[in-house]
Amino acid sequence: MAILEVQELSKRFGDVEVLRKINCSLEAGEALSIIGSSGSGKTTLLRCLNFLETPDAGRVLVRGETVFDAAEPKKPSEAALRRRRLHFGLVFQSFNLFPQYTALENVRLAGLLLAKERPDFREKRKEILTELNERAMFLLTDMGLADRAGHYPHQLSGGQQQRVAIARALALEPDILCFDEPTSALDPELTGEVLRVIRSLAEQRTTMIIVTHEMAFARDVADRAIFMDGGRVVEEGPARELIDHPQEERTRQFLSRYGALS
C-alpha cells in the first residue's frame, strides 16, 4: 500500500487556482522530486500536506488512513491535527531555526514538549531527557555537526543551519519528510553540503518529497519525479527518464530553460 496518497487536491487563493485536482502517491522508502517553475503550485502542495494551508477540495491519506478530507464537515481538534501533522516533517527554504536555542536545543525541543505530555514523564524524567539528548546529538553527528551542537543559529553558516533544520525535522521520525527548496536560500558554495545530506538520507531509504530547482540533483537522488505547471501535474515518471527524456512539450520547455536537456 502506498504510504501517501493525494487525491484530487485543489486550492485557490482568491481567483488564482494554485492547485487543480492534484493526484499523486508515494511508496515507503521512495524519494519523489517535484519540479516546476515558480508559481506552479509545488510549494503550496507541500504546505497543504503539512497543514500550513487548508485545501479547498480533495483528500490526503497516509497508510490508508485519511488525514485530510476537505469534505469532512468539521475541523479536527487541535490535538487530532497535531497527531496528523506528525506524519509529515518539513524543511523550509529559509531554515526557520529558533534563534534563541542552540542547535541541540532546536533539535530536541519538539520531542521534549511531546514527552512532557506523557503520563510517566515525572517518574522517568531523567531517562527521557538523556534519551532525547542522545538522539538529538546522534542526529547532529549524522549531519556532521557534532562540534556545533552548542552554537546558536546566528553563529552557523546557512548550510549548517539547514542541516540543523533537517536534524530537527528527523527528530520526530516523520513518515514522510518534505523539503521545500532546501538550497534556494544558500550561497552556491554551501548547497553541496546540504545536498549531500539529503542524498545520504535517500540512500537510507527515507521517504521524501523534495521540491527543488536543482535538476541534476532531482534526477540523481529521487526515484520518481513530478513536473508541475499552472497547479497541475503535467508529467510524472521515473526521475531520470522524466528529466532526460520528457514526453510533454511543456516539460521539455521548462527543462531546456534550466539547461538540463542536452
Binding site: 497527531r83 523550509f92 519538539a110 530537527r168 520526530l172
Partner: peptide, 8 residues
C-alpha cells in the same frame, strides 16, 4: 510555521 509542523 516551524513550530506548527513540529506538532507544537
Amino acid at each position: 510555521e516551524a513550530g506548527q509542523v513540529l506538532g507544537m
